[in-house]
Amino acid sequence: MNSARASASDELISRWRQVLIEMRRASAVAGHEAEAVQLLAVSKFHAAEAIAALNDAGQRDFGENYVQEALEKMQQLRGHDICWHLIGPLQSNKTAEVAANFDWVHSIDRLKIARRLNDQRPDELPPLNICLQVNIDDEDSKSGCSLAELPALVEAVMALPRLRLRGLMVIPKAGETSAFATLAKTHAAILARLPRLADAPFDSLSMGMSADLAEAIAAGSTWVRIGTAIFGARPTISSVGTTA
């Protein structure tokens, strides 16, 4: 590795470690166990080389938004112990590839997609971990089921044997961190109504990004999705040339 690459790798790992420190600090302030919150490094538009450097340093979970981009990285990173999470919207024509290659999907918002993932999950793989994305603010521009639709979707997904319902995900409006508390209350209400989910386990709240990490952890997040604070500014999609 030349000196420029070594310097870039050192900076990347330094930023990653700083995020871990901020997560521990936020957990302590909120009175939560630090181990209860996991870091999902959002690597979309960033090179496989950067993912490999972080993985070698100890980061195992990586989140991607675009299926084709992620599949290319998976090919390049065969042999690395990586847990792959899809966090972007999922189209019907991509479900077979996701079912065969990902460990988690955080962005399920309708039963049609869940059923396709269930039917297409290879038998030799463990059940696919699923979070249901909730559009708490009812924004037309965002994916996610409504709070009113959520109970029926939970019940239906629970019946799919090749999926493992793990929890809920939200992407709130910028600055609207009250959505985190709403999601946490919704999660608790679902567990109270369906106690058998505790054995699933229905244990995940995927919420919080670089700008609102502390607020999300205070509300009970178990997965914070951090990209910019670790990798720096993302390249533009045109420079990457990758489609969903």
Score class of each variant (00 low, 15 high):
residue 160 L to Q: 04
residue 28 A to H: 06
residue 66 Y to H: 13
residue 192 A to H: 14
residue 10 D to I: 11
residue 25 R to P: 10
residue 65 N to V: 05
residue 93 N to L: 08
residue 243 T to Y: 12
residue 77 L to T: 02
residue 221 S to C: 07
residue 164 R to A: 03
residue 108 I to Q: 07
residue 220 G to W: 04
residue 60 R to Q: 06
residue 32 H to T: 14
residue 230 I to R: 04
residue 239 S to D: 08
residue 120 Q to R: 03
residue 181 A to D: 13
residue 109 D to Q: 07
residue 222 T to F: 04
residue 165 L to D: 02
residue 174 A to L: 14
residue 127 P to G: 00
residue 66 Y to D: 00
residue 24 R to T: 09
residue 161 P to Q: 13
residue 237 I to H: 10
residue 129 N to Y: 01
residue 170 V to A: 06
residue 122 P to A: 00
residue 14 S to A: 13
residue 189 A to S: 14
residue 193 R to W: 11
residue 228 T to V: 05
residue 96 A to G: 04
residue 53 A to I: 00
residue 185 K to Y: 14
residue 96 A to C: 13
residue 222 T to V: 01
residue 173 K to D: 08
residue 216 A to D: 04
residue 2 N to P: 10
residue 64 E to H: 08
residue 156 A to G: 08
residue 25 R to W: 12
residue 34 A to P: 06
residue 45 F to Y: 06
residue 137 D to S: 11
residue 19 V to R: 04
residue 194 L to G: 09
residue 71 L to W: 01
residue 188 A to G: 15
residue 8 A to E: 13
residue 197 L to M: 10
residue 190 I to M: 15
residue 41 A to T: 00
residue 120 Q to P: 11
residue 110 R to H: 04
residue 46 H to I: 02
residue 49 E to T: 06
residue 179 A to K: 11
residue 168 L to S: 08
residue 30 A to H: 11
residue 110 R to G: 01
residue 167 G to S: 08
residue 37 V to K: 10
residue 43 S to A: 04
residue 71 L to D: 12
residue 117 L to E: 03
residue 105 V to G: 03
residue 131 C to D: 00
residue 237 I to G: 07
residue 38 Q to T: 07
residue 205 L to S: 09
residue 180 F to Q: 10
residue 9 S to K: 14
residue 211 A to W: 08
residue 87 I to D: 01
residue 62 F to E: 03
residue 65 N to R: 08
residue 167 G to D: 03
residue 18 Q to D: 12
residue 25 R to D: 15
residue 217 I to Q: 10
residue 22 E to P: 06
residue 139 E to D: 15
residue 50 A to D: 11
residue 210 S to T: 10
residue 138 D to I: 10
residue 16 W to C: 15
residue 133 Q to P: 00
residue 8 A to P: 02
residue 153 L to M: 07
residue 209 M to N: 11
residue 147 L to I: 09
residue 52 A to H: 00
residue 131 C to F: 11
residue 92 S to M: 10
residue 244 A to P: 03
residue 230 I to N: 02
residue 189 A to G: 12
residue 53 A to W: 01
residue 104 W to E: 02
residue 3 S to A: 06
residue 213 L to G: 02
residue 152 A to E: 14
residue 63 G to E: 00
residue 225 R to K: 08
residue 62 F to I: 02
residue 154 V to M: 13
residue 46 H to T: 05
residue 57 A to S: 08
residue 132 L to H: 05
residue 39 L to H: 07
residue 215 E to H: 15
residue 71 L to T: 09
residue 99 A to T: 02
residue 199 D to R: 09
residue 123 D to R: 09
residue 75 Q to E: 14
residue 44 K to Y: 05
residue 108 I to R: 02
residue 45 F to P: 05
residue 110 R to N: 02
residue 152 A to G: 15
residue 231 F to I: 07
